[in-house]
Design a protein around this nucleic acid. Structure first.
Lengths: 160, 160
DNA sequence: TGATTTTTGTTCATCATTGTACTTTATTGT
DNA sequence: ACAATAAAGTACAATGATGAACAAAAATCA
């Protein structure tokens, strides 16, 4: 059994492909962690800062959804960044439940430094891959993301 | 500043590409976690079992290196799997320091079940991507892995 | 309006991962 | 052979992530 069509999982082209993606991600995460350590932040913080840089005034809920983590994670990390003077949390005027997030000046400039490092590392790591190929990779990943999110959406509503 | 060449990081093709890879990885990890939860194992255990399935008699050190984690991580996880009767650890005859790892019968059959689920999920997630494209993705990831590993090797020996 | 349900964010207990220090065994150098 | 160094595995303390229970505010609906 299982050695009828393709002997082992690692002989499937898609399986090998995915193993490569997973390893690459892990290594990249570690490399990124070291690259930005000098700025006193770690990958989770960087993700937050970049998203605030891009989407000013976002709520904690929306931020958590973008980062694919739970709300509680934001509640743990954001006060830290706030105390360090990198971000601000102001209550929304119309809905007193939500906290609107934005970068301080210090946060904005640190984020720009961090993004320069991040972009540099990504450029170096993908430098042997031509831009066109990168777009094909991106396309494959977006298809995958769409499928997984659809699967999740299917599971939850009708679930037991 | 920074908006001279390409306005923002997310306009770089390689940057966008990488963001997609990272998101895909995260979602896949979560989906995989749910997919194998019924077998009573989590992604780290699956990684271990698959590697033991493929490389019987490997040592804890080698396993840790393959999985890109620390030795201590193996020391935490393996006794668990051993108590559950999925793996065996036997001292090497020639070098009393190393423990040689192998799957039990129960472990082997559970691993086959798990790999079937894993392969199925990967196949589904990458189904819209033709096999040829998958190989191109794999190639890009292998280049990236090689670069990052070379960078690490460069940093450590001469490091401060 | 008043009661019920949703939504937002927080708190807390639990679990996973990491790095460091430590023990035991091999290897190297003299 | 003996001392020093390196390597394999373990123990432990610190950090990070997760999910569930909770409080406050808003929305829904009768």
């Amino acid at each position: 059994m299982m050695n009828k069509n393709q002997a082992f999982p690692w002989d499937h082209p898609r399986f090998r492909s995915w193993i490569g993606v997973a390893r690459a991600c892990q290594l990249m995460q570690q490399a990124m962690s070291r690259a930005i350590a000098g700025l006193g932040i770690k990958p989770p913080h960087l993700d937050i800062l970049v998203n605030l840089y891009r989407f000013d005034g976002i709520s904690q809920q929306e931020l958590a959804r973008k980062l694919l983590v739970g709300r509680s994670n934001m509640s743990m990390l954001l006060p830290h960044l706030e105390k360090r003077g990198l971000i601000e949390r102001r209550a929304d005027a119309k809905d007193k439940r939500v906290l609107r997030l934005s970068l301080t000046e210090a946060g904005r400039s640190l984020t720009e430094e961090a993004m320069a490092i991040q972009t540099g590392l990504i450029e170096r790591a993908l430098s042997p891959t031509p831009a066109e190929r990168c777009l094909q990779v991106a396309e494959a990943m977006e298809d995958l993301i769409h499928i997984l999110q659809t699967m999740d959406a299917d599971d939850e509503p009708d679930d037991a």
